[in-house]
Amino acid sequence: MGDITYRLSGSLANYQTRRLNETVIKRDLIAKHVEIVTREDYPFWFRQRILCYGSNAQVLTPDWFVEEIRKEYQKGNRNYGKKFVFLKGYREQGI
């Protein structure tokens, strides 16, 4: 897969790398963010990890991976744009 650059902010601004494949390239405690470059072999696992950080994470490069994460958030956002009614353990799209 190659190198990925990402930014952690807010409560994750003080993140300390624990993985050998990660390097902090910029830390701005005033703006409350840290930028990290990582070399990843398996995009699936990195994707899972970055998504769990929610709004405190932003993938910066490569562009194709930024787009993949953006699409994933769009899909999730659509799930919360719908209202659901729960009846007898079944989920039905409702009012």
Results as ranks from 00 to 15, higher is better:
32 K>H: 12
12 L>M: 13
88 K>A: 14
21 N>L: 04
55 S>P: 07
63 D>H: 08
77 N>M: 12
12 L>R: 06
15 Y>R: 08
90 Y>W: 11
95 I>K: 08
30 I>S: 09
43 P>V: 04
43 P>H: 03
3 D>H: 06
57 A>C: 11
53 Y>V: 05
91 R>G: 09
55 S>R: 12
30 I>W: 09
60 L>I: 15
50 I>M: 03
55 S>I: 10
8 L>C: 03
90 Y>T: 09
86 F>R: 09
41 D>I: 00
82 K>C: 08
93 Q>E: 12
93 Q>T: 13
69 I>S: 04
50 I>F: 02
51 L>E: 12
58 Q>F: 06
79 N>S: 14
24 V>Q: 11
12 L>D: 05
4 I>E: 02
80 Y>E: 06
8 L>R: 02
22 E>P: 04
44 F>C: 03
24 V>S: 10
62 P>Q: 07
13 A>G: 05
62 P>V: 04
55 S>H: 13
46 F>S: 00
7 R>Y: 08
54 G>H: 05
46 F>Y: 01
8 L>E: 01
11 S>Q: 11
85 V>C: 13
55 S>W: 08
18 R>E: 13
35 E>Y: 06
36 I>S: 02
3 D>C: 03
93 Q>A: 10
31 A>D: 09
5 T>Y: 00
87 L>E: 15
48 Q>E: 15
61 T>L: 07
54 G>P: 06
67 E>V: 11
42 Y>R: 08
6 Y>F: 15
5 T>K: 07
38 T>L: 02
20 L>N: 10
13 A>E: 11
11 S>G: 06
53 Y>S: 08
52 C>M: 15
71 K>P: 01
6 Y>Q: 02
45 W>A: 05
19 R>Q: 13
68 E>R: 04
42 Y>Q: 10
29 L>N: 10
59 V>K: 02
82 K>S: 10
88 K>V: 12
25 I>R: 03
16 Q>R: 14
9 S>R: 04
24 V>W: 08
9 S>L: 00
57 A>N: 05
12 L>C: 07
32 K>G: 04
93 Q>H: 10
76 G>L: 15
68 E>Q: 11
3 D>Y: 07
94 G>C: 11
37 V>S: 09
92 E>Q: 11
62 P>C: 07
63 D>S: 14
40 E>I: 14
19 R>E: 09
34 V>H: 01
25 I>A: 02
18 R>N: 13
6 Y>R: 03
37 V>N: 06
87 L>V: 14
79 N>G: 15
61 T>K: 08
59 V>F: 05
39 R>V: 01
6 Y>G: 02
89 G>E: 10
15 Y>P: 02
19 R>L: 14
48 Q>W: 09
47 R>I: 00
17 T>S: 11
72 E>P: 04
41 D>V: 01
43 P>L: 14
42 Y>N: 13
6 Y>H: 06
80 Y>W: 12
55 S>N: 12
36 I>R: 02
89 G>L: 09
41 D>S: 08
15 Y>E: 04
29 L>F: 13
33 H>E: 09
22 E>W: 05
32 K>I: 01
16 Q>I: 10
60 L>F: 06
50 I>P: 00
28 D>I: 01
47 R>K: 15
41 D>M: 07
79 N>P: 01
4 I>Y: 06
